[in-house]
Design a binder for these strands. Sequence first.
DNA 1: ATCTCTATTGACATCGATGTCATGCTCTGG
DNA 2: CCAGAGCATGACATCGATGTCAATAGAGAT
Lengths: 341, 341
Amino acid sequence: MKVVTIKDVAARAGVSPKTVSRVINGEDHVRAEVREAVQRAVAELDYRPNAFARSLSSSRSYLLGLFIDDPVSGYAADVQHGALLRCRARSYHLVVEPVELSRPEWREQIRGSISSLKLDGAIIAPPVCDEPALVDLFVGAALPHVLMAPSVEAMTSGTVRMDDERAAREMTEHLLAFGHRHIAFVQGPVSHSASARREAGFRAAMAAAGAAVDERAVLRGDFTFRSGMEAGERLLSLKKRPTAIFASNDDMALGVLITAMKCGLAVPEQLSVSGFDDTASSRAAWPQITTIRQPKAEMAAAAVDILTDPRFRRQMGDPEFHLLLPHALIRRGSTGLCLAA
Amino acid sequence: MKVVTIKDVAARAGVSPKTVSRVINGEDHVRAEVREAVQRAVAELDYRPNAFARSLSSSRSYLLGLFIDDPVSGYAADVQHGALLRCRARSYHLVVEPVELSRPEWREQIRGSISSLKLDGAIIAPPVCDEPALVDLFVGAALPHVLMAPSVEAMTSGTVRMDDERAAREMTEHLLAFGHRHIAFVQGPVSHSASARREAGFRAAMAAAGAAVDERAVLRGDFTFRSGMEAGERLLSLKKRPTAIFASNDDMALGVLITAMKCGLAVPEQLSVSGFDDTASSRAAWPQITTIRQPKAEMAAAAVDILTDPRFRRQMGDPEFHLLLPHALIRRGSTGLCLAA
DNA sequence: ATCTCTATTGACATCGATGTCATGCTCTGG
DNA sequence: CCAGAGCATGACATCGATGTCAATAGAGAT
């Protein structure tokens, strides 16, 4: 169980440990031949730097934290995966920290990870990125952090987001283009700031097209499959039944779709259904659901890039650290021409 | 930006750093009043031990690794969540490491995490836990590790599993009890050892009931929704159409179910469908899918318990470290009486 | 030929905790 | 009343890397 240390490498290469350290960290001021000798020694001994010793002495941890509300969701999985791969490419590691805002000890837990693990940076996913008390913890600790899809661009934090409102507008226009006028909308939970933006986009597009929004056909959901089913049931039993339903995420859209099938409605012939996010649920259905592709993995990867960019610490306010990533409307089988009388 | 160290606490409590360390780590040989004084000082200064310094000097890292093939799947999410919560309760942290067996550098990456992060233990999820070359990396490093749902109980590793064969038998019996005789089976990929066990259970139950297995109605899938749809299409176009389809995981069962709806078949009146695992997909459908609840989070939590149990290191062969967790058959709407002529 | 100046290198202290071991104390029992 | 056991505590070295700074050597300037 012998552990190879930097001293062993130094001895083998005939240099001092400090020089080995320089080579490992890609610093300047090392002659090419010495560098090669060290690299050879590293390879021969299969040397791996001890991450803890390195962190202790350099006060960098090479660790990023991912703070997330519901780590079981498909959304979380995509975000985590994107962050993980980019971390690996940058020789960082990722620590996932579930945040349970419902339990009072969440502050303690977060402060514990920050100061115990000496995180180099944090990625804060929705919806907890909209909790000011939480973000303040990071600001207070002067810990670089990036908010994903936040409601506002705080100047003390980096941000990575997509244009929810515009995307929702485009989706609504897509439905309008098919001739739909009576379009229902299933809202997301108020705790997600994206909910409001998506609804605003829907209303803006309707208004621009001169189509009235039937307020009885605007229902609140909570981004779950079940809430989508419930909304679907209520919408389909309306006297004036909508010809299209725009659910503000895919899980709810799937719920609506399943409900439509239960009611014997053909999709998209008798009812168009559209979602948002492009999570697995939108593909696990038939017809597959027309949706907005949210670049979740890319957003997470961009967050990692920002946090590991050495310039970031000094320039949190730099616009370069407020990214807007492009979305895309993905046309699939669940939306089509309005065939209503 | 002042960091509180153990020395500060020691000074405040009027004792030596070593004594503070004893209190923090709950060691014996500290007078009650001294212990209290130290705890008071810790609280007043809001002291948090530096995880890196601790790891460096104690050669324990308080880190567990979770090695997993496809971190985006619903299965992975459940496993991870179970492990995460238990880690937190035990003051450990979890590092998730995706393993891409398809890329040649996977060995390097794993060896890097093991020796760089000095993991205290590893949880190896299916299907990679059945890759001997991978497990050998941990055995070779003498790193305690637990295999989840492995094909065999290696004596060099801990194991946590469920009885896949028996569960599959029970599910088959459930269908047989509804009067089904012509039952189709959708196999999992050969890379998952659980696939074979589930199929064996299916065949055993069929044989015990004297029901013949129609080999044309046994198709291979790969645990994805899409492969379930494809299997469904082929099964439903068979001349001798099965009255029940048992898919060996939920994603495929969902694919089968959707295909049945496309074909206009009523479930469960004209076709019973059952799945396995109790992942989100089994509930994101209508009717909801009858399935086997696999205790994924519990298995992961148990793995954490095993790895953090101080006795484990010396007694890997101890039967106590080979757990079999109970499953359950969850009856939902997708299975019912066989109404075929 | 001498003097800067800079590129290269290593000695040594340091990060913040824990392991080891020595010390002094209290308590038991003969 | 004292030897010996055991408890409570602290001094000091240590884990394995990096930061600081001084020392050296060679290049170029005068």
